[in-house]
Design a protein around this nucleic acid. Structure first.
Lengths: 332, 332
DNA sequence: CTGTTAGCGCCTTCAC
DNA sequence: GTGAAGGCGCTAACAG
């Protein structure tokens, strides 16, 4: 059985109050008493009970991060950085995944594990803006990536501009038929939509007509989806000579298929991804990509959330974090 | 302000007890009352306070997973599967990372976030067996991968056998000089040690002498470490024609370096990794690997932990989960 | 079937 | 400087 404040007090021959003071190093404790309590604390291996403390002061020191999939490289990397940022700020991060399930997102937004955290970072996937904005009661919420509602804080990159840059780069390479891989018309989530928008803008700016058959939808964002979409593109009567993939995972799947089909990257087909995931730096060839500054994103998101937890009630902020196009071998 | 049981009771004109009964759908509530309470519950958008509930019944319904790095593909995949397994069992998983830091491991083992979870799954890295066994007080603990102490539950693959199989496969391919990449002599963690042991056993079984210069240590297990180690191997007067890498990440880094140096895989150099991480299925060439059954591992670990949480006091069990050698292009 | 109440462990206001 | 006591929200033992 874990020992409580009272046990320690008894052992040290003082009152609970004094022990509490020592534990939270408050002033007003004589050095002698403090020392005595200290040793009692150690002998009993006392640890404050977080449930009780949380109940009492309404704060747990815990921050929650909810992502669709913890095992997708992008979210895994992001989670790692957010955990680091939280750690630096003296908070502890706990991570939850929803597998893209609306119910789970909903539950985590206001259910048990959104219950004992002081604030929540959410990367929405299946939930509509209205639901997110509506359900947000109680703990502060900061949205990652998606900007849903002007009433809730948001941190993310400018997807439209980033996609435009990536596409423009492919066009500047002299490619004639630039495809877009990764549309998700079945989702409320609008990230893919923003990226197509940027893609189309770049095409238009270059005086190119939009070609609907070069815009390929995918179910999810895994390598296998990229592979399937690439097979589709290569089967076209007039296949593309460049593809802008909406995530690195999609691009890596597409790249593998290109190789299997004898299509040389970048000679026959230039590829650019999005996310700057570790794998893309080591693939063969290495993958050009739009690199969101994930460390800054994590830092800003945690800072904003902690400010809210601290009681800040300034109007909701939408912060755009930097990104950069990294040209590597797949589009050199 | 969130509404409490009392608020609801007041609104419905009943006692807290009755509301509590309804919330936890206990019996002994008349349908009429139940309905009345239900609507009060909804009107007030009542949500149980987890801190209070935990304080009261000493259980939170939360399980914790502590891994060195949440952004390494292996741990990310494992975390995803463990979260799924927990979900299926009605528990919620929270994930923490330590970045391989002994202090953080220590803190998480018994600190705040090990305080409000009912049980802990730990993949130790920097902590010594003695510390792990000693610090384990309070919540049940199940060790993942490393088998530290007979007194604590453990689930993992047979690293020695797996490494032996992988090495034997390379030998059977007719390779003359088989290297081992990934030793970690600086860690208390013994996974690498077990894998070298299996490697040496296979060599011995084939009547080959051990060649110390073919056993390459690494600092960490990332691609960059694999790349560095590979450069070292290729600079040897008599470089290997096969390498068994202790993780897929190391292998992927090594593979990229081989390509840069014009060494053909698998013709000039056969490669086998360990972990069966998603990337290796899509790399070029695809990566042969030892595939631990991660889903089973997750399932068993969660089941065992929940049994402990439920009060099981059978002697500590050490479970070996299955693994399989997957021969793909890098050693075909 | 339902109401009343003690107490989980902690912090903190009030008294000394 | 330190002690006593109340109460955070919930559950369950004890009435009725």
């Amino acid at each position: 059985m874990a020992s409580s404040l009272r046990d320690v007090a008894q052992r040290a021959g003082v009152s609970v109050r004094t022990v509490s003071n020592v534990v939270n190093d408050a002033p007003y404790v004589s050095p002698a008493t403090r020392a005595r309590v200290q040793s009692a604390l150690e002998e009993l291996d006392y640890r404050p009970n977080l449930a009780a403390r949380t109940l009492r002061q309404g704060r747990s020191g815990l921050l929650g991060l909810v992502v669709p999939e913890i095992d997708s490289p992008y979210f895994a990397e992001l989670a790692g950085l957010v955990a680091d940022a939280a750690e630096r700020s003296g908070a502890t991060l706990v991570v939850d995944q929803t597998r893209g399930d609306a119910d789970r997102e909903r539950r985590l937004l206001s259910g048990p594990s959104g219950q004992f955290v002081d604030g929540l970072l959410l990367s929405p996937w299946a939930l509509s803006p209205a639901e997110v904005a509506g359900r947000r009661q109680g703990v502060p919420l900061v949205l990652l990536g998606e900007r849903y509602d002007p009433s809730v804080d948001h941190v993310g990159v400018d997807n439209v501009a980033a996609a435009r840059t990536a596409t423009a780069h492919l066009i500047a390479l002299g490619r004639r038929r630039v495809a877009a891989l990764g549309l998700q018309p079945h989702l409320v989530n609008s990230t893919a939509l923003q990226r197509v928008t940027g893609y189309r803008q770049a095409l238009a700016a270059a005086g190119r007509p939009a070609e609907p058959q070069l815009e390929v939808p995918v179910e999810r964002l895994h390598r296998v989806d990229g592979a399937r979409a690439m097979r589709h593109l290569l089967a076209l009567p007039d296949p593309p000579d460049a593809v802008f993939c909406f995530t690195d995972e999609l691009a890596l799947g597409a790249m593998r298929v290109a190789w299997e089909r004898g299509v040389r990257v970048p000679d026959d087909l230039a590829l650019v991804g999005f996310d700057d995931v570790e794998d893309g730096r080591w693939s063969r060839p290495s993958l050009s990509t739009v690199s969101p500054d994930k460390a800054t994103l994590a830092e800003v998101a945690v800072a904003r959330l902690l400010a809210r937890v601290g009681g800040s009630d300034e109007p909701a902020l939408s912060t755009t974090t930097p990104h950069a196009l990294l040209v590597r071998e797949s589009s050199a």
